[in-house]
Amino acid sequence: MNAWKSIAKEAFSQTCLVAKFLGFLHLTNNYLISPTLVYGPSMLPTLNLTGDVLLVEHVSHRFQKVGPGDVVLVRSPLDPTKMVTKRIVGMEGDQINFLPDPSITDICRTVMVPKGHIWIQGDNMYASCDSRHYGPVPYGLVQGKLFFRVWPPSSFGSFGQ
Score class of each variant (00 low, 15 high):
Gly160His: 15
Pro35Arg: 11
Lys115Ile: 08
Val53Glu: 06
Ser131Tyr: 07
Pro153Phe: 13
Leu54Tyr: 03
Tyr134Asn: 02
Pro68Ala: 11
Phe148Asp: 04
Gly90Phe: 07
Asn124Ile: 06
Lys20Ser: 01
Asp94Gln: 03
Ser6Glu: 13
Gly67Trp: 00
Met43Gln: 12
Pro152Asn: 14
Trp151Asp: 02
Phe24Glu: 02
Arg149His: 08
Ser34Ile: 01
Val66Arg: 00
Arg75Tyr: 02
Gln161Thr: 13
Thr50Ile: 09
Leu27Cys: 10
Arg87Gln: 13
Ile96Leu: 06
Pro80Val: 05
Phe148Ser: 06
Leu146Ala: 14
Phe98Asp: 01
Thr81Lys: 12
Met112Arg: 11
Tyr31Trp: 12
Val74Trp: 01
Lys86Gln: 05
Leu99Cys: 09
Thr85His: 04
Ser128Glu: 10
Gly122His: 04
Arg62Asp: 01
Lys20Met: 01
Arg62Phe: 05
Gly160Asp: 14
Leu55Ala: 07
Thr36Arg: 10
Asp101Ala: 10
Met112Leu: 15
Ala127Met: 15
Leu146Pro: 09
Val142Gln: 01
Ile104Tyr: 03
Val38Asp: 08
Ser131Met: 06
Val113Gly: 07
Asn30Tyr: 11
Asp94Ala: 05
Asp106Ser: 15
Phe63Asn: 04
Val150Lys: 07
Phe98Ile: 03
Ser131Gly: 11
Ser76Thr: 01
His133Asp: 09
Ser34Val: 05
Leu73Pro: 01
Ser60Glu: 00
Phe148Glu: 06
Leu54His: 05
Phe156Ala: 09
Trp4Ile: 05
Asp52Thr: 09
Val38Cys: 14
Val66Phe: 07
Thr28Phe: 15
Val66Ile: 15
Val72Met: 04
Gly23Asn: 13
Val18His: 05
Ser76Phe: 00
Met1Trp: 01
Pro68Lys: 09
Val150Leu: 15
Trp4Gln: 02
Val71His: 03
Val74His: 00
Arg149Tyr: 06
Thr46Ile: 12
Pro153Val: 11
